[in-house]
Simulated scan of single mutants.
Amino acid sequence: MDLLLLGGTGFLSRTVAEEAVSRGHRVTALTRGVSGAPPNGVTAVHADRNAADEMARAVRSVKVAAVIDMSGETVAAARIAARELASADSYVYVSSMNAYRNWPPGPVRGEDDPLWDEESDAYGPVKAAGERILSRAFGDRLLSARAGVIVGPREIGGRLTAWLHRISAGGRIAVPDALDQPMAFVDVRDLASWLVDAAERGMSGPVTATGPYGMTTYGGLLRACRETVSATGGPASELVPITEKTLLEAGVQPWRHLPFWLPEEVARTAWQIETATARRLGLPSRPIEATVAGTWEWMRRAGTAAYQAGQAHGLPPELERSLLS
Rank of each mutant, 00 (worst) to 15 (best):
M1Y: 13
M1Q: 04
L4P: 08
L4K: 01
L5R: 04
G10E: 14
T15P: 10
E18M: 13
E18T: 11
R23T: 08
G24D: 00
R26I: 11
R26E: 15
R26Q: 06
G36F: 02
A37P: 13
A37Y: 04
V42F: 08
A44N: 04
A47K: 02
A47V: 02
A51T: 10
V59A: 10
S61G: 05
V62K: 02
I68H: 03
E73N: 14
V75D: 11
A81P: 05
L85H: 08
A86D: 05
S87F: 12
S87Q: 12
S87H: 15
Y91M: 05
Y91Q: 06
V92N: 09
S96G: 09
M97Q: 12
N98G: 15
A99G: 10
R101T: 02
R101H: 12
R101M: 08
N102S: 10
P104W: 05
P104D: 14
P105E: 12
G106C: 07
V108C: 02
D112T: 08
D117E: 13
E119H: 01
K127F: 01
A128I: 01
R132Q: 08
R136G: 08
F138E: 01
S144N: 02
V151A: 09
R154V: 11
R154C: 11
I156W: 08
G157T: 05
G158E: 03
R159T: 07
L160M: 14
H165T: 05
S168A: 03
G171W: 04
G171E: 06
F185W: 09
D187S: 10
V188K: 01
A192S: 14
W194T: 15
A198G: 03
S204N: 14
V207M: 14
T210N: 11
G211T: 01
Y213V: 01
M215D: 05
Y218W: 09
G220F: 06
G220V: 11
L222C: 13
R226E: 12
S230T: 06
G233P: 00
A236N: 11
E238K: 07
T243I: 10
L247G: 09
L248A: 11
E249C: 00
W255K: 08
R256F: 15
E265L: 08
A270Y: 07
W271H: 10
A276Q: 10
R286W: 07
R286M: 15
E289K: 11
M299H: 03
M299K: 04
R301K: 11
R301W: 12
A305Q: 14
A305W: 01
Q311V: 02
A312Y: 12
L315T: 09
L319Y: 01
S322F: 05
L324C: 02
